[in-house]
Simulated scan of single mutants.
Amino acid sequence: MNTQNQVQFIDISDDEAGQRIDNFLLAKLKGVPKSMIYRIIRKGEVRVNKGRIKPEYKLAEGDQVRVPPVRVAEREEAPVSAKLDKVAALANCILYEDDAILVINKPSGTAVHGGSGLSFGVIEGLRALRPEARFLELVHRLDRDTSGILLVAKKRSALRALHEQLRLKQMQKDYLALVRGNWQSHTKVVQAPLLKNILQSGERVVRVSPEGKPSETRFKVEERFENATLVKASPVTGRTHQIRVHTLHAGHPIAFDNRYGDKQFDSQLSGTGLKRLFLHASSLKFTHPKSGEEMRIQAPLDNELNQCLKVLRARKNHQ
């Protein structure tokens, strides 16, 4: 058991203001289940300025929060050395950083945050890498197997401004995907509503359905190969697994997609060295939350994806 056995009094800074008390406690009390957080709020054990509050209470600068002692079961942790190696590797993935934002080229196979049995994700790694940073939060997410650009806010004001850009669709994200077959040049947009299902295993599966949420992705052919096409995919909406399901809906699933892919297509790529989902967030265009400057950041492909393209080009040239 892990015990925080003393009452804590936390003074709310400008950066922490504006968030709900339940979300604040979830971030502060790592590993404490949501149900316990709501219980201690409901029982009045959490107080703000000595008064009881509801879970939706929004914190203001200068508030003093009383946090009671809590006990949580410890999770199976990875050896410290393995974690340190991952943290060190993340340091080499940083593409851009200033006092408001941090941009990382996320490796494939790393989750954006711990959870569902994982104690380590990108955000935990960055917090370990930047212990002095009082605030580090993901602006958006990437699937675990997708590599590429991930934007992190270092100030709450930056997070709010960037979330507003996402809401107003003012942020442009471009991905590169290797898909099955010969993508039709006239297929420039896929608009197909997406419905998310959670299986009993907790796995998320998304499918096209009239009951789903409106979803749109724009496509452009970048390069053609024998039996495969490299496309640029630019999602207009940001649904779970959107590009993966939209390419499948268009009849061109992505290489090595273990959920929506085609095993036969994957086997045609043997000899290219590819063993992972070929989906990479390659470019992000947004307005800097502090300077107002237009930023365009690009993330290079990793060695495995580059090697795969090299082999496919060689095969095409030998025809």
Rank of each mutant, 00 (worst) to 15 (best):
residue 193 P to D: 08
residue 193 P to T: 10
residue 195 L to V: 00
residue 196 K to R: 15
residue 197 N to T: 09
residue 199 L to Y: 13
residue 201 S to V: 12
residue 202 G to M: 08
residue 202 G to A: 06
residue 202 G to P: 04
residue 203 E to H: 14
residue 204 R to G: 13
residue 204 R to E: 15
residue 204 R to F: 10
residue 205 V to P: 00
residue 206 V to I: 15
residue 207 R to F: 06
residue 208 V to D: 08
residue 210 P to T: 14
residue 211 E to S: 12
residue 212 G to Y: 02
residue 213 K to I: 01
residue 215 S to K: 00
residue 215 S to F: 01
residue 216 E to C: 13
residue 217 T to P: 07
residue 219 F to G: 05
residue 219 F to Q: 02
residue 222 E to S: 10
residue 222 E to N: 07
residue 224 R to M: 12
residue 224 R to P: 09
residue 224 R to A: 13
residue 226 E to D: 14
residue 227 N to D: 14
residue 229 T to Y: 03
residue 231 V to C: 09
residue 232 K to T: 09
residue 233 A to P: 00
residue 234 S to V: 00
residue 238 G to T: 08
residue 240 T to E: 11
residue 243 I to W: 03
residue 244 R to V: 07
residue 245 V to F: 05
residue 247 T to A: 11
residue 249 H to V: 08
residue 251 G to P: 06
residue 253 P to N: 04
residue 255 A to H: 09
residue 256 F to V: 06
residue 259 R to Y: 08
residue 260 Y to T: 00
residue 260 Y to F: 04
residue 261 G to C: 08
residue 263 K to I: 03
residue 263 K to N: 05
residue 264 Q to D: 15
residue 265 F to T: 03
residue 266 D to A: 12
residue 268 Q to I: 05
residue 270 S to P: 02
residue 271 G to E: 00
residue 273 G to K: 07
residue 273 G to I: 04
residue 274 L to A: 00
residue 276 R to P: 01
residue 279 L to T: 04
residue 280 H to W: 10
residue 280 H to N: 05
residue 283 S to E: 13
residue 283 S to T: 12
residue 287 T to E: 08
residue 287 T to S: 07
residue 289 P to R: 02
residue 291 S to D: 03
residue 294 E to Y: 05
residue 296 R to W: 07
residue 296 R to E: 14
residue 296 R to V: 15
residue 298 Q to D: 14
residue 300 P to K: 08
residue 302 D to E: 12
residue 303 N to W: 10
residue 303 N to K: 14
residue 304 E to C: 07
residue 304 E to A: 10
residue 304 E to H: 06
residue 305 L to F: 11
residue 305 L to S: 07
residue 308 C to M: 07
residue 308 C to S: 13
residue 309 L to H: 01
residue 310 K to H: 12
residue 311 V to W: 10
